[in-house]
Design a protein around this nucleic acid. Structure first.
Length: 545
RNA sequence: GACCCCAUCGUCUAGAGGCCCAGGACACCGGGUUUUCAUCCCGGCGACGCGGGUUCGAAUCCCGCUGGGGUCACCA
C-alpha cells in the first residue's frame, strides 16, 4: 500500500455539475480513500462574472446526492486548510503575486482585452501563433493609461524552456520553450486566474495528486512553471480521458443546444414552417423571438433555451448534468457505478461494484488513455440492475427525491405504503422511476377503452367472457384482498377449471389494465383494492355488450 | 493553422510477445422458462485502422501514414 494521498475536486460554480465532473470527483475520492487519504472539495469561484452561489450550492447538493462526500471542504468539521472558496482566499493569492513581482518573476501588463483581441485576429489572419511576451513600456505610456483609468493585469514572466509533465496516465508530455506564453495570473479586478489560484491552493492544501480532464493537459505546463517559480514541490498529475457524446466530441452542455437546434430545423423542414424568423417556434415555446433567432444562429447555447425549444418540438435532450439524471428517474448508485466504468475497469469481468469494492480495487494505473463515449443504453441497464438489487428502503428514499424533482406524477399522491407497493411491483420491470408512472399509469386512471387485440385474444375467444364473469363473482366474495390470498384464489380457480393460470388471470388483466399488461395479477388487484377492481371489471363487461 | 493526446466488436472494455483464428458487458437478433409485461436462462451476430519494420513468433515493441479528439481567454 502507498502513503495516504490527498486529492481534490475543484469545480467552478458557473453551472451545474455534469457527468465529466462527477467522474473526476469519483476517481479523486476513490484514489484518496483507497490510499487512506483525504478527498477535498474546493470551489473555484474566481470568475466574478459567471460564478453564482446557487451554482455552488447546486454542486454541493449533487455531490451529496451521489454520495460523493468530501473529507475536507465546505461544511466539514475539518477546516484546517480552509476556507475552501477561492473568493475567500484573495489575500493569500495577492501576497503570492506580490512575491513573484518582487522577485521579478511577474510583471504588470497594460493592454486591454480589446487590444489583445485585435492582435490575436491579426495573428490568425497571418497564420501565426499568438503568444504574449513581455513588452517595454515608457513611463509616459503607463502614466497615460493610469490617467484614463486603465488597470493593469499581472502576467507571469514565463521562463523560456521546455517543460515536461510526468502524467500518471499518459506518461511524459513535453512542450517546447515557445509554447507557454506570459499568461495572466492576476486579473484587473484583483482576482487571480484559475492557473494561479489552483497552484497556490494545491500547494497550500498539500494536495498530492491532481486528477482532471484531459482538456487541461496543456494547462499543466503553466502550473509546473509556477510551482518551480515558488520553489514548491509539484503534486503528481493525471489527466483523465474525455467523455465523448454519441457523435464523438467532448460531452458538454452545448450538446443540448445542438440537439434542440437540429430538431427545430428538422421540424421546420418537415412541416414547411419558416426557419428564418422562427416566429412559430417562439410562439409555441413561449420564448422571446430575437433570443431564439440568436440561439438558432449559434450565437449562444443557453441550456434553458435549449430546453424550451425541446419542449416545443418534442426533442429528447441528452443527459448531461446531474439534475438531468435525477429528473429522469435515475439512481445515484447506478450513475456512479456506470461512470466508474467509463474509462476504467477492474481488470476482471465485474461490472456491478459496491462503493467499498470500488475503493478497494480502483487504481489510477488502470485508467484508460482513450476517450470513452457515453452510452445511455448501458446506463439504463445499470440503473435497472440497481432497481432490482437496492434495498427497498433505499429505493423509497430515492423515489421521494425523484418526486421532489418532477411535477405531475400520480405517485405524488401516494402514501408510504402505496409507494412501497409501487416499488415492489415495478422494480423488476422498471429501468428508471419514470417507468413507474409510464408503465403503472393505468393504476391511477380507470380505463375507458380496451385494446381490441387483447380483448379478442383473451376475452372473446373460447369462453373468456364467462370465465371473467365467474372470476368477478369469486372476487366479489373474496374476504381477504391481499396479494397472497388473491394468488391462492386465482390458483384455486385455475385448478378447479383445469385451465392454466393465465387463462383465468389474463381476462381480468385486460379488464383492469385496458391493454393487458400489468404486474402480477394478485399485486395489481391488491393495489387497486376490491371496489376499484370490481368497478373496472364491470365497466369492461358493460363495454362488451 | 500551431501545439498536444489517442487508436481492440456499433458502444464500454479484457488483453502488458506465444495461454488470442482475441474474452466479458451493453445494444441487436433467435430460442426457452413464466400469470401479460419485465425478470431469468441458452444461443447467435460482431473488432485488433493501414503500411513498414523488430522477432522463431505481434493486438501487444518501433517508425510512418491515416483517422479521431483536445488546447490555443483578464473561463475554469
Amino acid at each position: 500500500m502507498t502513503a495516504p494521498l490527498r486529492t481534490r475536486f475543484a469545480p467552478s460554480p458557473t453551472g451545474s455539475l455534469h457527468v465529466g465532473g462527477v467522474r473526476t470527483a469519483l476517481y479523486c475520492l476513490l484514489e484518496a480513500h483507497g490510499s487512506g487519504g483525504h478527498f477535498l472539495l474546493r470551489i473555484e469561484d474566481t470568475d466574478q462574472a459567471r460564478s453564482t452561489e446557487e451554482a455552488a450550492n447546486g454542486i454541493l447538493r449533487d455531490m451529496r446526492w451521489l454520495d460523493l462526500l468530501w473529507d475536507e471542504g465546505p461544511g466539514t468539521p475539518d477546516q484546517t486548510f480552509g476556507p475552501f472558496f477561492q473568493s475567500q482566499r484573495l489575500d493569500r493569492y495577492r501576497a503570492c503575486v506580490q512575491q513573484l513581482l518582487d522577485e521579478g518573476k511577474a510583471y504588470e501588463a497594460w493592454e486591454s482585452r480589446e487590444e489583445l483581441d485585435v492582435e490575436r485576429k491579426h495573428a490568425e489572419a497571418a497564420k501565426e501563433n499568438f503568444r504574449y511576451r513581455r513588452r517595454p513600456y515608457t513611463a509616459d505610456q503607463i502614466a497615460a493609461w493610469r490617467d484614463e483609468g486603465r488597470l493593469p493585469v499581472v502576467r507571469f514572466a514565463t521562463p523560456r524552456k521546455p517543460v515536461t509533465v510526468v502524467d500518471r496516465i499518459l506518461g511524459e508530455v513535453t512542450v517546447d520553450e515557445d509554447t507557454v506564453d506570459d499568461f495572466v495570473i492576476l486579473k484587473d479586478d484583483g482576482f487571480p486566474t484559475y492557473h494561479f489560484a489552483v497552484v497556490v491552493d494545491d500547494h497550500d492544501m498539500q494536495i498530492d495528486l491532481v486528477l482532471r480532464g484531459q482538456e487541461h493537459l496543456m494547462n499543466t505546463h503553466k502550473h509546473l512553471l509556477l510551482y518551480e517559480a515558488f520553489g514548491w514541490r509539484a503534486p503528481q498529475h493525471g489527466h483523465l480521458p474525455l467523455i465523448f457524446n454519441p457523435t464523438g466530441q467532448k460531452m458538454s452542455k452545448r450538446d443540448k443546444a445542438r440537439v434542440a437546434r437540429e430538431k427545430a430545423r428538422e421540424k421546420a423542414k418537415s412541416t414547411g414552417a419558416d426557419a428564418k424568423t422562427w416566429t412559430w417556434l417562439a410562439e409555441e415555446a413561449g420564448i422571446d423571438r430575437e433570443d431564439l433567432v440568436a440561439f438558432m444562429a449559434k450565437k449562444h447555447d443557453g441550456v434553458s433555451m435549449a430546453e424550451a425549444v425541446a419542449r416545443a418540438t418534442g426533442a429528447t435532450l441528452p443527459l448531461i448534468e446531474v439534475n438531468d439524471f435525477r429528473r429522469d428517474g435515475y439512481l445515484p448508485e447506478a450513475i456512479v457505478n456506470y461512470l466508474c466504468l467509463l474509462g476504467w475497469s477492474p481488470g476482471d469481468d465485474r461490472e456491478v461494484l459496491t462503493r467499498d469494492e470500488m475503493v478497494a480495487v480502483f487504481s489510477i494505473d488502470r485508467v484508460q488513455k482513450t476517450a470513452a463515449r457515453f452510452d445511455a443504453d448501458k446506463l439504463l441497464w445499470m440503473n435497472q440492475e440497481y432497481m432490482k438489487s437496492l434495498p427497498e428502503d433505499t429505493l423509497l428514499e430515492h423515489l421521494g427525491e425523484w418526486l421532489d424533482a418532477v411535477h405531475g406524477s400520480p405517485l405524488h399522491a401516494l402514501d408510504e405504503a402505496g409507494r412501497r407497493a409501487m416499488i415492489r411491483m415495478y422494480r423488476p420491470r422498471a429501468r428508471t422511476f419514470e417507468d413507474l408512472h409510464r408503465l403503472g399509469g393505468f393504476l391511477f386512471v380507470r380505463p375507458t377503452t380496451w385494446a381490441e387485440k387483447q380483448v379478442k385474444k383473451h376475452v372473446l375467444a373460447d369462453g373468456g367472457v364467462e370465465r371473467l364473469r365467474a372470476t368477478r363473482d369469486t372476487l366479489s366474495a373474496q374476504e381477504d384482498f391481499g396479494a397472497d390470498a388473491l394468488a391462492a384464489m386465482f390458483q384455486r380457480l385455475a385448478d378447479d377449471t383445469g385451465l392454466g393460470f393465465g387463462k383465468v388471470a389474463q381476462p381480468v388483466r385486460v379488464a383492469v389494465s385496458g391493454d393487458g399488461v400489468s404486474p402480477e395479477i394478485q399485486d395489481t388487484l391488491a393495489f387497486l383494492g376490491r371496489t376499484e377492481t370490481l368497478a373496472r371489471i364491470d365497466a369492461f363487461l358493460v363495454s362488451l355488450s
